[in-house]
Design a protein around this nucleic acid. Structure first.
Lengths: 172, 172
DNA sequence: GTAGAACGGTTCAATGAATGAACTAAAATG
DNA sequence: CATTTTAGTTCATTCATTGAACCGTTCTAC
């Protein structure tokens, strides 16, 4: 219920999108899922988000079809939250907004580089590969740490994400 | 104080961006400013946002450099909120997210079309003109109403925005 | 077999933000 | 002079977030 009754009155697909991903914490959850985080405790470790809020956000995202809950072992029963194709299509949104923040709100340079796996070229802010002249889907992106990556976070999940990593691949 | 003390711990330009535009209502204010809305009462008419929240959001956006407050008459003193270049660079974010919402959350087709002014070609979801092979800045975009524009909103500002309109041009 | 610990949550009290209505102030308009 | 317009502020109520504590399984170590 991101913007609830009020956003309904907005005849606008932006408002509809914000109903799904516009709540506090939600886009950071999506970002981490894009990076390969899948488990409740891993989201928790990286985000310093209250547990109740994380539960609620994950449920909303599953409900909306951005994430899918998937039982990966039965004993003990454990589920992971995986990006759906619909969720993976949020990749350009995340890059575009990140790059905007980078240009206007930071001084220390990019914290992460996104390269086209097939050719190694750095993506444009719009998630396009200028060399291949295509929009690059999340699955084809290799993420590398940049100079702005402060290493502030010392939890194991963040540590794992400081290594080069293919998007959507599980961490570890 | 979008995500306040907690987001500070995220070594990430996405989190920084969300500090500025991630609060409830904020991106809708930015959208309307992109469409040419400039005055307090016009934002109010279109958004059904509580006045106190609008005041606070406008102040935050001015503070961050996304909008600039500009005195356009002295008697009575009247200010308008205009997009800065930094704010205008949010255009790709808005289109990308809108188009995602359109693809996955609506049935009635696009509510607005964005065309490259110079050539009339419809923009890609990333705000690129496929004909001219350039990223199109907000100033060069012509906005047309689409089939999904419900006409639900009957306030004069929304009515004015149902006509073809160049982005960032004042409404009226 | 028992004692922790790990995981994935829920529950609860306290705080903080959003809402909607009413109020203010300054100037234009009739 | 009374009313309207614009751009706010103030305030009481409601709603969401926070952080800490708790819970029920199941695994691991002893």
């Amino acid at each position: 219920m991101a913007l609830g009754k009020n956003y309904t009155a907005q005849d606008c697909s932006l408002a509809k999108a914000l109903e799904v991903i516009g709540e506090r914490w939600t886009l950071l959850v999506v970002r981490d899922a894009m990076y390969g985080v899948r488990r409740y405790s891993d989201f928790l470790a990286r985000l310093d988000i209250p547990r109740a809020v994380l539960s609620q956000r994950l449920a909303t995202l599953v409900d909306a079809g951005v994430l899918a809950k998937h039982r990966y072992q039965d004993s003990p029963p454990r589920d992971e939250y995986m990006m759906t194709p619909m969720g993976a299509e949020l990749f350009p949104v995340i890059v575009t907004l990140s790059r905007w923040g980078e240009r206007h709100l930071t001084t220390s340079g990019p914290s992460r580089y996104f390269l086209h796996r097939q050719c190694g070229t750095q993506l444009e802010p719009s998630a396009r590969c200028p060399a291949c002249d295509v929009q690059v889907p999340a699955r084809d992106v290799e993420m590398l740490p940049g100079p702005g990556l402060s290493g502030l976070r010392s939890d194991p999940v963040s540590k794992a994400l400081q290594k080069p990593h293919r998007l959507l691949d599980p961490i570890g």
